[in-house]
Nucleic acid binder design. Structure first.
Lengths: 186, 186
DNA sequence: ACCTGAACACCGTTCAAGT
DNA sequence: ACCTGAACACCGTTCAAGT
């Protein structure tokens, strides 16, 4: 009965994310993580159900780091900044970020980000009934670019080139959003 | 000296792809693959350098299955069919396809597909100097969508919905390409 | 309640040996 | 040249035991 916990789920997840950032996803083993926390591997199982649950938690933690887009700016700037923040988060967490493509964004933080996009699209004049689809396509394009970048597909391209690609991507998504306005002619 | 090979690299890769398709990426272990080929695990090392090399080969094999876009059609149809073929390939090889985001498309087959896109963009009127970037963005959008789909991010969406999303995606990419024509006004 | 020690089945990979 | 047998360090996970 009652002895002071030496570790907790929060620390376990934070340390796992740090390990992944420093040495890659493969370096995150139960034993290496335990060693880093000064504990035996089996101690982790009181705080995570298994390794899949550990990675779920780490992805969730990553999502809490998406800063909310700054309020009070016009929608194109808000979405542009949000996209840039998401890309920056990909660069900070290159080995974990690709896991975002493997699970629906159902956590509280993921919902908050999506709601921010919904609001921007509403302001842009996209009709209610089309907002969810437009959000999916826009988010998928941004995530797909960011994952390609940190995953290694653009390994042979310069940072300069990729920055420019990303600017063009944001512009094209802006044009797409405008084309989906209720009063768009066609 | 000379004894008849019981397996070869081609069979190893084909069987590994089949295993991944049937039971997922994690089911592709050196021993399970060897068992399937009727050989000991160590025999594989004469045909692949190690497991990473095995997966590289499997991705390469997947790329050979992208059918070349049918010649003789106008560029929008050609690109639309190519995109649909790539998406279909993702569905056939759901566990291997996401690995495409981890490596530059430098194999012969990947180059062939890219060249086909270049030609279509040329026909569309995109100036030489902009073709490579437009191709990167268009391919990234299609890959990002397909990987999200087979990776599980759209797990909560119906096939109907995703088919519709994909149609809208193709249309938006078509509009983007047209907006990049030399004679586009702006 | 929280952590440990011992154990299990499995993983990728090496090396020397067989034909 | 091609495959095998034995071995190694490591992996995730379980169970019973300690405090």
């Amino acid at each position: 009965m009652g002895r002071p916990p030496r570790i907790n789920r929060g620390r376990v997840l934070a340390e796992a994310l740090a390990m992944a950032d420093e040495d890659g996803l493969d370096a995150v083993t139960m034993s290496a993580l335990a060693r880093r926390l000064g504990v035996t591997p089996m101690a982790l199982y009181r705080h995570v159900a298994n390794k899949a649950d550990l990675l779920d938690g780490v992805v969730e933690l990553l999502l809490t780091e998406f800063p909310p887009p700054p309020a009070g700016l016009p929608w194109p700037e808000r979405l542009g900044i949000l996209a840039a923040n998401i890309r920056a988060s990909a660069h900070r967490h290159a080995s974990i970020f690709p896991l975002l493509l493997e699970r629906p964004a159902t956590t509280t933080d993921a919902r908050r980000t999506r709601r921010a996009v919904y609001e921007a699209l509403g302001e842009a004049g996209v009709p209610e009934a089309r907002i969810a689809q437009v959000e999916r396509l826009v988010s998928t394009a941004v995530l797909g670019f960011a994952v390609s970048e940190v995953g290694g597909r653009f390994r042979n391209h310069s940072r300069r080139q990729l920055d420019d690609d990303f600017d063009v991507l944001r512009a094209l998504l802006g044009d797409f959003i405008v084309s989906q306005r209720a009063d768009a002619r066609n």
